[in-house]
Computed example of a mutant assay.
Amino acid sequence: MKRIGIILIILIIAFSSGCTDTNQSKTMEEGNNISVNNAGVNVSDNINASKTVQDSDLKSAPDLSTSPDTTNTSNIVQKGDNVSVNYIGKFDNGTVFDTSLIDVAKEADLYDANSTRTYEPMSFVVGAGQMISGFDNGVLNMTVGEEKTLKLSPDEAYGEYNQEYLVPVPRSDLENASIVPEIGKKVVANMRIATIVDITDSNVTLDFNSPLAGKNLTFDVTVVSIEKASKE
């Protein structure tokens, strides 16, 4: 079988999620579709992020912590609006994996003084597929200053873990790109981030699953601003 080589580039990643390098990982942010043909495997994944990365329809609505006044639609989040939010992302056990708040990041030992990441509200266009589906749908009908807790299943976040996204590639491909294979190292293949999970004398296995695949996630969200969509 004719082998189509892939270009691998070492990433320096400060990974504290989706939500979030989210540049904030945008947590949440998904990358472009990937096609890795070295092993005859096509990988096409919609994870947000930012397609977090595209996203599937919301299968179960998140819990609503409050019931905002929806009589004035200019004050509530609707599809097409550009919104800015602060968020704290947590696993079921309460461990914080990502946040837009620097104090929370420091408390959770996520802050890296040497990182170029900035901690600030995350902005996105609601319904544009820029976010994982549960987050995107969860902010609908919120108002400025409102706080809400979103509890997302894998289907609403980064999907279930998929064994088909484990792709072996020739070790020589990495070495020819001046990459020393190491377990856990992040690389870019065909515009997608992958993690090296196995190394043999001849092959290296890349994992294209999101690190958050298969996990239930909780996001504490606060709406900072709403810029209404143009009526044109």
Rank of each mutant, 00 (worst) to 15 (best):
T149H: 03
G159P: 02
T118S: 14
F97M: 06
D112T: 04
S60Y: 07
D81W: 13
K185T: 02
S225P: 08
N48F: 09
D201H: 01
G89R: 09
N176I: 02
A39L: 05
V125G: 01
P181T: 07
V180T: 15
A108G: 02
E164T: 05
D45W: 03
N86V: 06
I196M: 06
D55N: 13
V126R: 10
K106R: 14
T205S: 01
N137V: 03
D109A: 09
L110N: 05
E164L: 07
G214C: 00
T205F: 00
T218S: 14
K186W: 01
G5W: 10
E227H: 14
D155T: 05
G31N: 07
Q78N: 15
T116Y: 08
L166S: 06
L58P: 00
S56W: 03
M122F: 15
N82F: 14
K90Y: 04
Q54T: 12
E29I: 15
N72H: 09
A213S: 13
M28V: 14
I12V: 10
R117Q: 15
G134H: 05
V104S: 07
A177V: 03
F208M: 05
A113P: 02
T143E: 13
G80Q: 12
E107W: 02
V139F: 08
Q54D: 10
V104N: 08
I9C: 02
I4C: 02
V126D: 08
F97D: 03
T73F: 13
K186I: 01
N37V: 10
I226P: 09
G138F: 07
N176A: 13
D98V: 08
M142H: 07
F97P: 02
S225F: 11
V204D: 00
V43I: 14
I13M: 11
L206G: 05
V53T: 12
S16Y: 12
N42C: 04
F15H: 04
S17W: 06
Q54R: 10
I4V: 14
A229H: 13
G129Y: 06
G184R: 01
F135D: 00
S67R: 03
A108W: 05
R171L: 13
G129V: 09
G40C: 05
F219W: 08
T118A: 13
D220G: 01
V197W: 04
S210C: 04
G80D: 12
D198P: 00
E156M: 14
L11R: 08
A14N: 11
T116F: 09
A108P: 03
A105R: 09
V169Q: 09
V223Y: 11
Y158D: 08
D69Q: 00
V104Q: 12
N23G: 12
L101I: 15
T95E: 13
T66S: 10
Q54H: 08
A108H: 04
L11M: 10
A157V: 02
T70R: 14
D207R: 01
P181M: 10
S178V: 06
D21H: 04
V224E: 15
N75Q: 15
P168L: 11
A189W: 03
E160C: 00
A128D: 15
E182Q: 05
E30P: 01
